[in-house]
Design a protein around this nucleic acid. Sequence first.
DNA 1: AAGTGGTCTAGACCACCTA
DNA 2: AGGTGGTCTAGACCACTTT
Lengths: 263, 263
Amino acid sequence: MTIDPRDTLTRAPTAPPPSQRVDKASHLPAYVQLAQTVRQSIADESYPSGSRLPSESALAKSFGVSVMTARQAVSVLAEEGLVERVQGSGTFVRRVQMARSHFTLEALYEVLARPEELEVKILKAGVEEPGHAVIEQLRVQPGTPTIVVERLLLHRGRPFVFQVAISRFDPRSPIVETMLDSAVLTGLLSDQGRSSFKKGELQLLPTALDAREANLLGEPPGAIVFRLEHLFFDFSDRPAAFGWLLISPRRMPLISRVGVWDE
Amino acid sequence: MTIDPRDTLTRAPTAPPPSQRVDKASHLPAYVQLAQTVRQSIADESYPSGSRLPSESALAKSFGVSVMTARQAVSVLAEEGLVERVQGSGTFVRRVQMARSHFTLEALYEVLARPEELEVKILKAGVEEPGHAVIEQLRVQPGTPTIVVERLLLHRGRPFVFQVAISRFDPRSPIVETMLDSAVLTGLLSDQGRSSFKKGELQLLPTALDAREANLLGEPPGAIVFRLEHLFFDFSDRPAAFGWLLISPRRMPLISRVGVWDE
DNA sequence: AAGTGGTCTAGACCACCTA
DNA sequence: AGGTGGTCTAGACCACTTT
């Protein structure tokens, strides 16, 4: 759902466009320079919250670039969430707001991308009858065997992630290979590994560790951590891999910045 | 950090570009139609994971559009995370991976955007001496009074969010107005309200509710919930508002989808 | 050297909103 | 009706990678 910024804000007059021109000597693209100029004007309140930016053609003219280039600059700011385009009306400076923030698993990705610092301990690997949750998620018949793998991932010798992964048992693929293939972990997380899926759904939850999990992760009993549930689908749209990661917020901080931070 | 997709994947030959043309009768823009065509080819593995897409000029030619239009179509897929551009080399189909997921506070935003369904209960509003954490976050001198407000937000009559907000005491602004201004909550979350900041930093954490918090939110004692800490800065780059929200994952599910879902 | 994506031009017409 | 952003053209040159 979208809220029209004009409904709720006192319309401020459009400030004059910057008279500055692109520095052709600079190796920075013109659209980056223009975006930074406008970003700075938002930061110092030359273009206050809710006000309308100069039109793209006005920006182009005053900055000495073509309309498409000015448009690209505005696109950068729109993607950053600093401004909002309204067709037929203009581009408006958006207020800084919490709900626009988004959180990425960058911290996890950074670690997984350096396999030389990682160690994978297989805690359990076998074929099991699925429980209720697994039957529902993987959409298998009760009694159908599934492959269950528990892994502890260590980063620089310290416990990092505890993972439980449950896959369909596929008679066409070698069992042992599938079970021990750490690609089911690293392949889902980084660009590496072989495993390949069509799509996936993830849910982030807060949870408390039980005694065993806390011990494995080197956390105090009952520690509160993130649980990242994942369900991946093969190219036939069948749910193929279900599982979850447990990871401490200290090891994977979820931080988001909104508004103008660079300068 | 970035991993070159070519390092880790068997290079698959580039499949032929789609011979389909844009439907000019359709009201869908050409770039959307082309993006959907390519998306479908990724979904059915005509362009398998790791393979190179046809070049933008090849796509443009076979689809009967200009290069810039084909480029815009590829940009859509790149923003979705389905493909990755490598300058000088090509555009490659990316594997579906967990670490590319991102989580937004959309569920929270949806609720906050409908003020008619909301009710705000002020549980506490007053001037207090700041504690250790607040002194650090707001960078105030010990002993400097700060404004503390506790609010319970109800959605359709049911407890939704518990918020604690601590602001600098600003002698230039009316105290009571500042204290009771629900904009400090809704303004930070939605486009509405008056409060305005230059930038903000947010951190999402898992936490357990204490007895009072659980009672307020209608959760069982010790329930595990999200804690969204926020620190907002005014246009002088001074930290101006610090606080946190407590919200159940049932009321704000954090779900992310990766790969090809539409069709 | 040839091919790729990245940037850029100088226009054009359209859909939409405001006055 | 005039202004705005949204889409699109048919080129161009550049930076970069691969052959």
